[in-house]
Design a protein around this nucleic acid. Structure first.
Lengths: 202, 202
DNA sequence: ACCTGAACACCGTTCAAGT
DNA sequence: ACCTGAACACCGTTCAAGT
């Protein structure tokens, strides 16, 4: 109900902090994101940071929400006509980027902090849900455009997501021997494609 | 050449530290593994820890190597007769455990530390390579047992690994809505199975 | 309401000193 | 060779104090 408002001064400050955070992480990885470095990069004092965010965890959570919102836009703007395979191929790189930037860190701190606020938890869940709904929409509409249908199980979308995360992580960690990334992507996309559509009866 | 020796006193001490590390991580997650807690749990002083390990990073690396060695044993001891699907189903839970305990942390600190020693890097790579070779062996022999063959591309084993990691991570992070884990596993295993074998000609 | 920085309780790591 | 713990330079977080 209160959505899509003009950004307030507080929102602007928060944006400033989040932009600085993205810069720091992309420059020096997880350990480069110290509260002190973040405050100085955002041009404010240590204490003020805690005025706008509850703690470091909250900064990460906001970063995650940003990326999920970007992913929703991307999924919604993806053309449906070229079909499922094109969609999947187009999503490999963005999901990999999301994984590299904050996704893989979530699992690390998620387990640490017990619960934060109920509100924060709800916000986080809502943002994740929107992302997965956008993915489901995109999958379904792309299948439609090919005259096919998505399998009905609720585990189909998680399966697609897990597959994309799998290659994202492999890319991040590297493989022991050089492999053809495009070939790996191709194999994965084929596997997804064929297991996500209802088989054609003849 | 120097392998399979009687464990030295130093090895015993290192074991003590690593066992304490596993305990701490499983009790309180990543953040519970502080050098001080580790030293006290292992019954030694802070400084001594640095006598047996170069730094915290090295403790993690050793933990990872342990788990990879366990995985090799598990893969090698898995029966081949029941075929590929049985093998994959049996590996889902162990890979998930490995992922939860240290696997997902590797990506976080890997990027931070520049290079450590060449020797350490070599040791780590060798351990990872052994694990993936064991996986490839197991996949190949299980396929054989069914009278099928594994596809020849080098990306086939990474694909299997990425798929297993994907569901491991999804399991760790949780999904926004409750899903049937067994169903997800089943879908993933089917997808792997069919894309990893050479199609039967008729 | 917005902002500061000293202070607190940690942390990983080093190192002089002991046996 | 093995072992200790004080000391160092950090860290995230709090909070009295300012405007």
């Amino acid at each position: 109900m209160t959505s899509q408002k003009e950004p307030s001064a507080a929102d602007d400050k928060r944006r400033l902090i989040l932009d600085a955070a993205v810069e720091l992480v992309s420059e020096g990885g997880y350990s480069a994101l110290s509260i002190r470095a973040l405050a100085s990069r955002a041009g404010m004092s240590l204490g003020l940071l805690y005025y706008y965010f509850a703690d470091k965890h909250a900064v990460f959570a906001a970063l995650m929400r940003d990326q999920q919102a970007t992913m929703v836009e991307l999924l919604d703007s993806q053309p449906r006509d070229p079909g499922l395979r094109s969609l999947l191929l187009a999503m490999v790189e963005p999901t990999r980027r999301q994984w590299l930037q904050v996704g893989r860190l979530v699992g690390v701190w998620r387990a640490e902090r017990p619960d934060v606020t109920v509100e924060a938890r709800e916000q986080q869940l809502g943002s994740a849900r929107m992302q997965f709904e956008a993915l489901e929409r995109a999958l379904r509409e792309c299948a439609d455009a090919e005259g096919r249908t998505l399998r009905a199980e609720p585990e189909i979308v998680p399966f697609v997501w897990a597959s994309l995360m799998g290659i994202a992580d492999l890319h991040a960690q590297g493989w022991v021997t050089p492999i053809d990334e495009d070939r790996l992507t191709d194999i994965t996309v084929s596997a997804i494609e064929e297991h996500v559509l209802v088989p054609i009866k003849e």
